[in-house]
């Protein structure tokens, strides 16, 4: 035990100043991510309470009903009443969990009344974004600095790279306080699009379309990653969403719009 604590101290002291000790899910900036966070905490607290009760009884028994303390074994080995009780109580607790979970799920699956449609296409190993109504379209991949640093034997200190592995060349820009419908598909294999603070993940499947919606309440930059194994560079296709106020978004769109006809002659 002693050796272990020394080991832990050594490890902690060698920890880089960039790192943090985040132990929980981040709170979200959209209704869906917040709902997921609230459910997560609710279920977590319930399991902690159950754990304390069950392990409490168990440890009481371990300390008091041991042979070395002269405990004599009792002879009971069944009780229908007790067993019915501990079948029914968990069932009731589960129903209590299922109700808010179902409500949240129904809310998450309702993509009606979206103002903007963003189509996200997964490629090996980058993302393509199409703003369906606004005629903006671009690819987004890992930025060059991270890409150089991540090569085997690059000798670059990744701690000095800005947002190592979580930075892209072209950010997705989305307006705040706007319901955005995100359509997901892929060109080659299955990918999954995930930005924890904005939304849970959903798979991007070649040949098929999935959808989810976001409504970002706070301007800022939010980062995420591909979360379905998609080949060798699966770990290197990040997502960066910049949420800006509506007017700024409109300006950004007009700067980035392009002519669809010109595209055809490419």
């Amino acid at each position: 035990m002693n050796r272990l604590s020394i080991l832990l101290i050594i490890m902690m002291s060698s920890v880089s100043s960039f790192a943090d000790w985040e132990v929980n899910m981040p709170r979200g900036v959209s209704p869906t991510a917040n709902a997921a966070y609230d459910l997560h905490m609710l279920i977590f607290y319930i399991t902690v309470v159950i754990g304390i009760i069950v392990f409490g009884v168990m440890f009481y028994s371990i300390f008091h009903h041991r042979k070395s303390k002269g405990a004599k074994p009792a002879s009971f080995h069944e009780s229908t009443t007790v067993e019915i009780i501990w079948t029914v109580i968990p069932f009731v607790i589960l129903v209590g969990m299922a109700v808010p979970a179902t409500k949240t799920l129904i809310m998450m699956e309702d993509t009606r009344d979206s103002e903007i449609t963003l189509k996200v296409t997964g490629y090996q190993w980058m993302w393509k974004y199409d703003y369906v109504e606004d005629n903006v379209s671009f690819f987004s991949k890992l930025d060059n600095k991270s890409n150089e640093a991540r090569q085997l034997g690059s000798k670059i200190d990744v701690n000095k790279v800005d947002n190592y592995l979580l930075n892209v060349d072209n950010e997705v820009v989305l307006p705040t306080d706007t319901k955005v419908r995100i359509l997901l598909t892929a060109s080659d294999v299955i990918h999954a699009w995930w930005v924890p603070e904005i939304t849970g993940k959903k798979d991007a499947i070649p040949g098929y379309i999935n959808e989810l919606w976001v409504d970002i309440k706070k301007p800022g930059v939010y980062r995420g990653q591909c979360t379905e194994l998609c080949g060798k560079d699966h770990g290197f296709m990040p997502i960066v969403v910049r949420a800006v106020p509506r007017q700024e978004y409109v300006k950004w769109v007009s700067l980035n719009q392009k002519n669809r006809v010109a595209d055809k002659s490419e």
Binding site: M11, V15, N24, P26, W194
Partner: peptide
Amino acid sequence: FVGLAGMPRRIPDYAVQFTDFNMI
């Protein structure tokens, strides 16, 4: 902890904020 903080599985390399717990 790293999972809740957002580290995907099946990746050979990760963002620096996940370093400590991965070392442990």
